[in-house]
Design a protein around this nucleic acid. Structure first.
Lengths: 347, 347
DNA sequence: GTTTCCTGCGAAAACGTTTTCCCGTTGACA
DNA sequence: TGTCAACGGGAAAACGTTTTCGCAGGAAAC
């Protein structure tokens, strides 16, 4: 019993040539209807499927799209992947997913491996370490090999390719303003470390809102959390502020959830004494008690859009369309960590 | 400027043959040291990387491992993937990840695509719909093509391959007994629908514990939740029990988190009036208030073990080692949804 | 001086497709 | 009878590797 059926097997068995079989299976009319039917029936019987590698080698495209993400146990990124998967599975592409684990070296490795022939296009969200280092030559190398590339969420402005991001600035601005409208006057922020691009945007949105609201901008009200350390004690410091904040804007779900735990322990009532809004609308926001009002980033849509842009580049390689950066609007999901009035006033 | 460097390019440039270049790059001693050095230096300069497809076609292995999971926005599965990724990246394999989205059709599609040549081995956790249908012929087909396969977490006993599961039975047994030890006498369960294998195991563990503890086993105390519907109202029914349960064992984090929300609304104190233990130790258990005592499944280890078994099969294809099923022990992570005493007494 | 043995390299086949070009047969038509 | 087109199919090249085999020339052994 042969383990793998090839065109040759079918050809030998049926007494025709390999090229005839190939053409018959592609329904080429140069082969008579009879012969075609016979070959197709036989191929089906044997459950023949063409060898992807050979086909790709010949056709010089593989219908595979490579994705590099920094972290797989992250609800936002997996949501993006779901969006990507929705489109690719519809359009007959396959996905090969690599993890950089926020490491520069792994990201370089991944890009080299992926660039060695097997994929038609590349979707990347940049690792923290890479952003900290500021070294992007591996992306430039990939582009030199004419590999279409789209950056999503964590992008780098200086790279020449399409980009898709959430409106981090706008989301932060909106969240901050919403808390103000519902009565908060001392709004502090829990942010990533300063080199993360999305963190920078969120911070700027927050500060812009404060500025417009004529709230004195004090930088000490932004607390940067190092995610590699246990961040409970880091978050705790926000409650050393005097006066105590009556609003907290968190750049990430976990930060908000931890802040809530600490606040409740201190007897601070939520949302009466303290309102919270967090970026990222994941399961933590939903199941935390009280549940957390969150900025929805539409990760699913981001994934869909990013891969659509990519497939467009792949299938129209000659097009001289200039690269574009698409920004996906954010939205507030109102929950119990903010006052009820917020919803009415804010909209 | 050429877009892609091949052996031929190097050969032409250096005035040697393609085979010489290939051998030189493999450090074959049949090529003189001088020539080797020259070729290697030149290849490095041009940043040559061999074409993965061509190499794979020739060598009839690709160093790629395929993974099919039912759901990517699921903390447990992504943890497993992290474990898989850890091993594969160390051993020089790449990962191609496909999503079945719990759908039988998608699972079949994925397997067909993957089986068409490009991967060396297959790692699968079975979709809910497939388990409901009970049709596994697509797995048998893949095996006929001599594709090594390892099933993890959601496995099917009748399939002839290695399997890795968590000790779902033992975890449930342990959780139920622990609640009993801390004083609970009316323990109810929130489970998946009956066709999910892991749910079956967890239910059996729960029932076994009750039986040993001489608690009358009433099947009505197991509530099956249909995850496709909004499950808030489904979970609510557990509080119609009379007497009210003083312990709830949940097969999934979300079930427990929702139960907590409902209980708190009803003025039921946790853990004084009601203890909860949930399967799956993810971010919901951690950030819920009160935090939830959970059964740790060691997803990371499961991923590592599964892929290690697979790679062993790949690299020792001839070995006649019988297929094995490895069960990974579970453990309790004590948090605030159970009484403090539980920890002391249970261990 | 003939045989044997290295050394260093090249030719060519093979992996499984796809596609271009070509060839033989048939029948129509002048 | 000779010309031509249409039809049905095959041969072969190409994609980029890897690997087996062979070959030439020189050195060593007899």
């Amino acid at each position: 019993m042969k383990t793998k059926i090839t065109l040759k097997d079918i050809a030998n068995e049926l007494g025709v040539s390999v090229s005839t079989v190939s053409k018959a299976l592609h329904n080429n009319t140069r082969i008579s209807k009879e012969t075609r039917d016979k070959i197709q029936a036989f191929a089906k019987l044997l459950k023949y499927t063409p060898d992807a590698r050979a086909r790709s080698l010949r056709a010089s495209h593989s219908n595979i799209i490579g994705v590099v993400i920094p972290e797989i146990t992250n609800h936002f990124f997996t949501t993006v992947i779901k969006g990507i998967d929705y489109v690719t599975s519809q359009k007959g592409y396959q996905l090969i997913i690599c993890l950089s684990n926020e490491s520069y070296d792994r990201e370089v490795e991944n890009l080299n491996l992926l660039a060695s022939g097997s994929i038609d296009g590349l979707l990347v969200s940049i690792a923290t370490e890479t952003q900290k280092k500021g070294v992007y030559s591996h992306f430039v190398e990939a582009q030199k090999r004419e590999l279409p590339m789209v950056l999503f969420d964590r992008v780098e402005e200086t790279l020449n390719c399409d980009k898709v991001t959430a409106d981090d600035f706008g989301g932060a601005y909106m969240a901050t303003k919403a808390m103000y409208t519902s009565g908060c006057r001392n709004i502090a922020m829990l942010n990533f470390e300063s080199h993360v691009t999305v963190g920078k945007e969120r911070k700027e949105g927050y500060e812009k809102a404060l500025q417009e609201l004529k709230i004195e901008k004090e930088f000490s009200r932004v607390f940067e959390i190092n995610e590699k350390k246990n961040f409970y004690s880091q978050v705790e410091k926000i409650f050393d502020l005097n006066p105590l904040p009556d609003g907290i804007f968190a750049a990430k779900e976990d930060f908000a959830a931890v802040a809530i735990k600490i606040a409740l322990q201190k007897g601070i009532r939520i949302p009466e004494d303290l309102s919270l809004i967090s970026f990222v609308n994941g399961s933590i926001s939903e199941y935390s008690t009280p549940s957390i009002t969150a900025v929805i980033q539409h990760g699913y849509d981001m994934g869909k859009l990013a891969v659509e842009l990519l497939i467009d580049r792949i299938e129209n390689k000659e097009s001289e369309k200039p690269f574009e950066t698409r920004v996906i609007a954010t939205k507030l999901k109102y929950r119990d960590s903010t006052k009820n009035s917020i919803k009415l006033k804010a909209t």
